[in-house]
Nucleic acid binder design. Structure first.
Length: 359
DNA sequence: AACTCGGGGTT
DNA sequence: AACCCAGAGTT
């Protein structure tokens, strides 16, 4: 009778060894066992660099130390804390799930993968992260780091954004996972990808996997991983009218299925083409929209722009002082300057407000 | 399976 | 300018 202990691959052993001897990456949530904190950190970190998410995580933990605190918070307040981080559906789902955990699970975070992955905003990556970090369950994370490390080490050129690629790398990640230390291993491979096997300039010269790395041995490091989808970007033209009436400003919340859902903005006119507004053209346009008005154009901003992943937004801000309340705007959300500062806006607007808007 | 959801750092 | 980032939801 021969006892075969579960054979750890050289890859897995090296990753763990590297983690224990050379990994000096520090993050506030590292080693965290509180599933609420882990979940929060993972939602924040989806498609977000660690350095960008760090301050948000600290602010959320400070303001909402427990899931009960978060669940009880008003949506606007949570959005304000999320402001500037992007992908705002994450924020909406965050609050939804916090409330579900309180109501359905009595505030106790589920501890089974199948339950965790059913939470809104939690997909395969996040479920594996929570399951392994909080409960040491043997689920392998597959994030951008893991795609990169595995595709290079194994020399796999299947596109990571294809269905076949996702399946292949998920299976490969599960195979490489250290079943005894899944949490530590998951953390280690991501840290390794972020600090050694980096996207553009990987540190192959002092990589502990160099000798067995297929990509390094064949000179394919800078060609892996493979992506097949091509990014297209469309240009949109936004004109924001900042209507001011008796010390208050018109705002509205974006609700449509579009960018910045849940955030606030001013009165928006989107046009097919770029507009070069003048006092005359603005006045004419406003009369057409609102009817004859007694108003004053206070300022027309120079062109502003913001680059999103799939869109280029060109914007112009026009401040308008109103003497009377037009019917079209009467049902709007008119806020004081203080109220304005409590609302979450897209970056295009916060940038304008901080730099150009001095009432 | 394709599309869409931000904002910012690195090269 | 292109690529990437501790991905997920919708159609």
């Amino acid at each position: 009778m021969i006892f075969v202990k579960s054979m750890k691959s050289q890859f897995t052993r090296t990753i763990l060894q590297w983690n224990r001897t050379q990994n000096n990456r520090e993050m506030p949530w590292k080693g965290e066992k509180n599933p609420y904190h882990i979940w929060l950190s993972e939602i924040i970190l989806q498609q977000t660099r660690v350095e960008q998410g760090r301050a948000y995580y600290n602010r959320f933990i400070k303001k909402y130390p427990t899931v009960f605190k978060l669940a009880a918070a008003p949506e606007q307040e949570v959005f304000k804390l999320w402001e500037g981080l992007g992908y705002y559906n994450r924020c909406r789902n965050l609050l939804y799930t916090a409330r579900e955990i309180v109501q359905r699970y009595n505030g106790i975070f589920p501890d089974q993968y199948e339950e965790i992955i059913q939470l809104k905003g939690v997909g395969p990556y996040t479920a594996a992260a929570i399951a392994s970090f909080a409960y040491n369950l043997p689920y392998a994370v597959v994030d951008g780091n893991v795609f990169r490390v595995l595709s290079r080490f194994h020399g796999v050129d299947t596109a990571i954004d294809s269905t076949a690629g996702k399946q292949l790398f998920t299976a490969l990640a599960a195979k490489m996972l250290d079943k005894k230390f899944p949490g530590e291993y998951n953390q280690a491979i991501m840290d390794f990808g972020a600090t050694v096997c980096k996207p553009m300039v990987p540190s192959c010269s002092h990589c502990p996997l160099q000798n067995n790395c297929a990509a390094y041995q064949t000179g394919m490091v800078n060609r892996l991983p493979v992506k097949e989808k091509i990014l297209t970007r469309k240009t949109r033209h936004f004109t924001y009218f900042i209507f001011e009436y008796e010390g208050k400003t018109f705002t509205r919340q974006r609700t449509g299925k579009d960018i910045w859902q849940g955030l606030f903005e001013f009165y928006l006119a989107e046009t097919e083409k770029s507009q070069k507004w003048t006092v005359t053209s603005v006045t004419a346009w406003l009369e057409e929209q609102l009817g004859p008005q007694s108003l004053k154009i206070l300022a027309i901003s120079s062109p502003e722009s913001q680059q999103l992943t799939h869109q280029q937004i060109n914007g112009c801000f026009i401040r308008v002082s109103l003497k009377k309340m037009p019917a079209l705007l009467s049902s709007g959300n008119w806020v004081t300057p203080k109220g304005l500062s409590a609302l979450a806006f897209p970056k295009l607007i916060t940038k304008y407000l901080s730099e150009k808007y001095k009432p």
